[in-house]
């Protein structure tokens, strides 16, 4: 442990309202499951200051299955996601992401809100959420706003989240039941590995044509990318070698991978196109 603990203050608010008031007054940083923050703390890389222990706030937890959408509270853990039958059935990409996040001890603690707010371009749930047109509810003392998740990430570790705001909930609309789903993370090993490349996708088929499609990619840009242009050229297409080649060329123009400790830009470009092809070939 390299941190000097007296540099840190932690408040545990008794209610969401108190939490929001504290956030409004000064620069507290939320602490949820701690699986990102405690790692930084141990390494001596957590900025000194005030932290807000939101972990027990009931309003930020829970899952509700509505007629049109499912609400996941920001504090929903990966283990809770994996156990939710409706998510397994209708949002398998999200469950696949949860299953491949860290290992079980991490899944028991890590939250979806923390994963989104941490805004790592290599994170597992963001690509899944992008394939399902997720919306994010942000809350502050001033009020709430619901934003499409596709607009949430602005740049490397830059998001729409204000310093006085909390992520309250994530919503996924229940219109993907009959779609074909695909989620694949490529990492150094099966568990406990951060991604080198992630492709998440889903498509709605009309006979042999792709009627509608969502495609997103992780670890190949400063933030998780929804590949709008590649979607666009595939929409209405038949599954054919020509369409696959066109899509592979297009996705290469959308991503901007780099060399880092986990992989190289070259490898990431190649694997991105291969995963895209694997997804398209998996369509009926």
């Amino acid at each position: 442990m390299h941190a000097f603990l007296p540099d840190f203050e932690v408040y545990t608010p008794r209610s969401l309202r108190e939490a929001l008031a504290l956030l409004n007054q000064n620069n507290h940083k939320p602490l949820a499951g701690g699986t990102d923050l405690m790692v930084l703390l141990a390494a001596g890389n957590l900025p000194a200051g005030s932290y807000l222990n939101v972990n027990g706030l009931e309003e930020l937890g829970g899952m509700e299955v509505g007629k049109d959408k499912v609400r996941l509270g920001a504090l929903t853990t990966y283990t809770e996601i994996r156990r939710q039958a409706i998510l397994c059935k209708e949002f398998p990409n999200l469950v696949a992401a949860a299953r491949q996040t860290g290992a079980l001890a991490i899944q028991n603690r890590g939250t979806i809100g923390g994963n989104i707010a941490n805004a790592s371009p290599a994170a597992d749930s963001p690509p899944a959420l992008l394939t399902y047109d997720a919306e994010i509810k942000l809350i502050s003392e001033k009020g709430t706003r619901v934003v499409p998740y596709k607009d949430f990430h602005l740049g490397y570790k830059k998001t729409l989240l204000g310093t006085n705001e909390l992520i309250h909930s994530v919503y996924v609309p229940r219109r993907f039941r009959n779609w074909h789903h695909y989620y694949r993370k490529v990492g150094a090993r099966k568990s406990q590995a951060i991604s080198k490349v992630i492709i998440a996708a889903c498509a709605l088929m009309n006979k042999d044509r792709i009627q509608d499609i969502r495609l997103s990619a992780g670890s190949v840009a400063p933030y998780t990318l929804r590949c709008f242009q590649t979607e666009e050229i595939l929409r209405g297409e038949k599954k054919s070698q020509a369409a696959i080649q066109k899509a592979k060329t297009m996705i290469l123009s959308e991503i901007s991978p780099i060399n880092d400790i986990r992989s190289t830009a070259k490898y990431r470009r190649y694997v991105t196109t291969q995963l895209l092809e694997e997804f398209l070939l998996s369509l009926p």
Binding site: V10, T12, G34, M38, N55, A105, I106, N108, R109
Partner: peptide, 11 residues
């Protein structure tokens, strides 16, 4: 199952 190195006293 949790990793005790990641659990802060406050929780």
């Amino acid at each position: 199952l949790v990793n005790s190195c990641l659990i802060p006293a406050v929780q």
